[in-house]
Amino acid sequence: MKDINILMIGVGGQGTVLSSDIVCDVALAGDADVKKSEIHGMAQRGGSVVSHVRIGDKVLSPVIPVGEANIVISFENMEFLRYPEYAGKETSLVVNKYRIYPPSVAGGQETYPSEQTEETKIAFKEVFEIDAMTTATGLGNSKVAGMVMLGKLAALLPFDAEIWRSVISKKVPPKTIDVNLAAFNAGYQF
């Protein structure tokens, strides 16, 4: 299969780690080789979290080389701006419209980089903007916003939706399977 590099970016507490774990298990179930590397902040919430996921016949480095991400998925609206080195001219961007204000923005010292976010989107081959939070709250659980994002990612990857659904059912808390699958389906059809 063609190598696929996915850079998954979010803010601590958004579920990016679980999401990237799911991508790994889906890839394995889909008979691919997969590696993931992760830098998560410390025990506290709110820091930037980034996972590199690489899928292929045989994956070497667990970290994506400069410019070689095929897909950048940003669980927060501006976070993808922090990792300019991984996107290239052929990269797709999946971005959540939802904003989480950094402390200095929330505190009024700085402004949210809305313009930069808009301008930078041009650098990507294609951009999918997902209103994951609205969809999730519509489903009655804001915590499944990440699963909406994952649904969109799934639609861009060469694995059967059934594989995704079965991996998700195993990975999320049993009581939340239904709402997570609903969120996944919504994202898949976005």
Partner: peptide
């Protein structure tokens, strides 16, 4: 080494 698609930005830190 490949060129990054966009330049690093001055961003509000987390």
């Amino acid at each position: 080494v490949k060129e990054p698609a966009f330049d690093p930005k001055q961003l509000p830190a987390r």
